[in-house]
């Protein structure tokens, strides 16, 4: 039995661990992949107080070491469910079940998928959700970007420096970002494809082409080796929907106090409804959630 179990070892979860340990509580942090969360993909962080320039990996490692030195326990197991038994919460992972008085859900978000057949199978074989991570593998090749938001536009601009040709495919008649069309027009190798949807991924061992359906119903095959999906993010709250109120986009509905619909279960970080999703606001959530959890434990 732990005082507090934290689900997710990103900046919010690890900051919560630091605060909970400093309040004298026993803490277990459960993480599905590696510590750090999304921030480890950032080459540079220039807006975190006291850090002029630090890499995401370095930042995450410093925070991990800080939490560990204070005595937080880390286990790398994916959490599949939480059960509320009042003063005890059962947290089940792929490997075991753990008990705590309070739980902080700091699971962050993941890239939204297109939801087309074979999409998962082709990750790492042509399908990618991070242009800056994987773009360099597509030097001199044709690629497509799916999405009409600012990330998709940035991805297309970035990839145009590496790839032979970049198709930007989006469902809407217009791109959502003001002035995006003009910016993209400066790059001859970017082809805009408004009011189009991707209907299939054609692959043998790796992606060879995609089928695109136009507004008038006609279909077209585009020979691309890479498809970069930039259609937003999904908060990872699905497994906890029974205990946490979620809004229509799946974010945990909670005020600045990080409380949820279930007493003793708190949320922190990017999976919470909030105005600004940044490293510093994730850390702030972690501090608040841990402090509220400690307060809650006193009532048991």
């Amino acid at each position: 039995m732990y005082d507090i179990i934290i689900v997710g070892a990103g900046p919010a979860g690890m900051t919560a661990a630091v605060y909970a340990k400093r309040a004298g509580k026993s803490v277990l942090v459960l993480e599905a992949s590696g510590y750090g969360g999304q921030i480890i993909k950032a080459a540079e962080i220039r807006n975190y107080p006291t850090e002029k320039n630090i890499s995401g990996v370095e930042f995450a490692t410093k925070l991990y070491e800080q939490a560990e030195a204070l005595g937080a326990e880390f286990r790398f197991e994916k959490v599949i469910g939480i059960e509320d038994k009042g003063s005890e919460k059962l947290v089940t992972t792929v490997a075991d079940t753990y008990t705590a008085g309070a739980v902080i859900v700091a699971t962050g978000s993941d890239s939204r998928k297109l939801g087309i057949a074979d999409e998962d199978k082709l990750v790492g074989r042509g399908v990618s959700y991070c242009a800056t991570c994987d773009g360099s593998f597509f030097r001199g090749k044709n690629v497509a970007v799916a999405g009409g938001g600012s990330t998709a536009v940035d991805d297309a601009l970035y990839l145009s420096q590496l790839a032979e040709k970049v198709y930007l495919i989006y469902r809407t008649p217009k791109l959502s970002e003001e002035g995006a069309k003009e910016k993209l027009a400066e790059h001859e190798n970017i082809v805009l494809m408004p009011e189009c949807g991707i209907t299939s991924l054609n692959a043998d061992k790796k992606l060879e082409s995609i089928t695109v359906k136009h507004k008038d119903g006609t279909e077209e095959n585009l020979d691309v080796s890479g498809l970069f999906v930039a259609v937003g993010r999904v908060p990872e709250n699905q497994n906890f929907a029974k205990l946490i109120d979620l809004n229509e986009k799946g974010y945990a509905v909670s005020g600045e106090n990080c409380h949820t619909a279930t007493p003793g279960i708190f949320v922190a970080g990017d999976n919470r409804v909030k105005e600004l999703r940044q490293l510093v606001t994730a850390a702030a959530d972690g501090a608040v959630a841990a402090t509220e959890a400690v307060k809650y434990l006193r009532t048991l």
Binding site: G34, G36, I40, K41, A42, A43, G56, V57, A60
Partner: peptide, 12 residues
């Protein structure tokens, strides 16, 4: 060298 997740996997 530029890949963050790779750096995390290294020690494992």
């Amino acid at each position: 060298d530029w890949c963050g997740p790779c750096k995390m996997l290294g020690p494992v």
